[in-house]
Amino acid sequence: MINSHILSQEFEFVEPHTIGEAVKWMAAYRGNAKFMAGGTDLLVRMKMGRARPEAIINLSKIPALRYLIIEPGLRIGVLTTFRQIERNGFIQKRYTALHEAAKAVTSIQIKTMGTLGGNLCHGSPAADSAPPLIAFGAEVRMIEGDKERTIPLEAFFSGPGQTLLTRKELMVEIQVPEPKANTGSAFVKLGRVSADLAKVSVAVVIEREEDFCRDCKMVMGSVAEIPLRTKGAERILMGRKFKEDLVEKASLQVSEEIKPINDMRSTAWYRKEVSKILVRDAINLAWKRAV
């Protein structure tokens, strides 16, 4: 019997102050603990009986995970909240799609609590932060024991609710390269209402050279088992003179490339249809901003 008003089981609760202590605790619990950032996904999963950790390792007392450095390029500590991203003027200007994704997160309360790291590690194909970060070429740094690795975010997701993170691994940082000059970007999301998860979302990053689209990245959310880069559609625009019929062609290509499902939020058919419109709008917005 599920009761979302309580957490029915007790667990151990530890609060490390350094990254080193956090991974040591995880090793001590042999991977049977959960790292907690904002808690908005983890505690829901525990209430629903989908996660039963022996212990929660609360990360919020680790200052070394809470920072946002602009250097050029971004270095984002995993505890950075959507609210902090949304309010950062530099991100709004140079990484507009990331700003728009943070803004599109369901509610002010979730934006205040929820972190970028938690959003990614939850592994949802609907994660708002994933499409823009992948489109900007982000990499994520992860630590387990004394081993460390950095991988492209594009390769991080492996299935619905699944990522390459091992049970003992901690994501510590998101690194986003500096966009080239003349780059514009946009994130467009469709939910039933604005305070909802995405039925479909798309991030587009375009590098412009006069009338030509020099480079293009396009990543969709909620249309496949993982946040999906639609490379066929990217190729239609790349290196070509920007024209309306090419945008049309790219948006049709996207609806061929995606593999949506029927679920409580939408049908596969609707997702394919509406993707064409969202992609068209996002491409045009990104293009206009690339000046």
């Binding site: 008003h5 907690m36 209430k47 629903m48 309360q109 205040t112």
Partner: peptide
């Protein structure tokens, strides 16, 4: 109880948060 309705909103250090998803 799952972060969708906002009726448990309180201010934590001045910011609005959901008390039903806070340990």
């Amino acid at each position: 109880g799952i972060g969708e309705c906002g009726s448990c909103t309180v201010l934590l250090d001045g910011e609005p948060i959901l008390a039903c998803l806070t340990l």
